[in-house]
């Protein structure tokens, strides 16, 4: 049964999903193609002009730089904040563990629009933080907490932290406690055991989480536009403008291709360094 006709069966089972994935592949190929066209629709002449234009516009280069910076900062913060939480979820034996797990995961099912509205209420000029500080007499007039790079970082960390926690936790849970106990029996103090055993073994989770968080950060449009309000011009904002406002599709496609390359390069660097670490 599992071998007769199984090739045909497998093909039939996979066909619909492959068909749907082909839409994505066609979409990516189309974008790649359009990024080399002078004009679309219209002038179908193949050219590198769009890439040259991208590289010669300080505004776009700055956006690329900001995108990269945002991705790296958000990823780093997610690692630092997410690792202890993941460790807590896997190793700490308390009755709150399940509740914490639910709270960590639940935001994944709450719309990014809703969560960003929440940050506006907290960080806005008439928001929670300002009201709190004023009532405590720390400040006299509202602080400008919105419209900054760091506001966007806060909003993105909130959206993406669950992904990081999940991917670190899933690797941590596969590390056998016996290994750590064995290390301690061999004379390693808890801190040493953590640094020499747990941390290296969990790097794979950190890497997987970082790749996801970085890719999702640089692809997010809503958070920079709502919490940054024109002060945080990342590529996502440029792509939206190029595509939907000024309708320069080849330019938008070029930005999107470069954005994707940025994610792929980041992924390649991370995977390579992890491979080197685990090969040791």
């Amino acid at each position: 049964m599992r071998t007769v006709r199984s090739k045909l069966l497998i093909a039939l089972l996979l066909a619909p999903a492959v068909l749907i994935s082909m839409v994505m592949i066609a979409a990516i190929a189309t974008t790649l193609g359009i990024s080399f066209l002078r004009q679309f629709p219209g002038d179908l002449q193949v050219t590198l002009a769009n890439y040259i234009a991208f590289l010669s516009q300080p505004f776009l280069l700055k956006a690329a730089y900001q995108t990269m910076a945002l991705g790296l900062v958000v990823t780093a913060i997610c690692v630092v904040l997410g690792y202890p939480v993941a460790w807590f979820l896997v190793k700490r034996d308390t009755r709150f563990r399940n509740a914490v797990f639910l709270i960590v995961l639940a935001p994944l099912l709450v719309s990014i629009v809703v969560r960003t509205v929440g940050w506006i209420i907290i960080l806005g000029n008439e928001g929670l933080v300002n009201a709190l500080l004023m009532s405590l007499g720390v400040i006299d007039s509202s602080l400008q907490l919105m419209r900054s790079f760091w506001t966007v970082v806060v909003g993105l960390v909130h959206v993406l932290l669950p992904f990081m926690i999940l991917s670190i936790a899933s690797v941590l849970s596969k590390i056998d406690d016996d290994v750590i106990e064995a290390a301690m029996l061999l004379g390693a103090r808890p801190a040493t055991a953590f640094l020499k055993i747990t941390l290296p073994m969990s790097m794979q989770g950190v890497a997987a989480g970082s790749i996801i968080v970085f890719a999702l950060t640089i692809g997010t449009y809503l958070t920079p536009i709502w919490l940054g309000r024109g002060n945080v011009n990342v590529l996502a904002v440029s792509i939206h403008e190029q595509a939907l406002i000024s309708v320069e599709w080849p330019a938008a496609a070029t930005s999107a291709v470069l954005l994707t390359i940025m994610a792929l390069v980041f992924m390649a660097i991370f995977l390579a360094s992890i491979r080197r670490m685990t090969r040791r």
């Binding site: 994505m24 979409a27 999702l216 996502a236």
Partner: peptide, 18 residues
Amino acid sequence: TPLVFPAIALALSLAMVM
């Protein structure tokens, strides 16, 4: 892939192919 592809690039690409 759709889970990890930068959303804005996926969005633009789908818009173009559509």
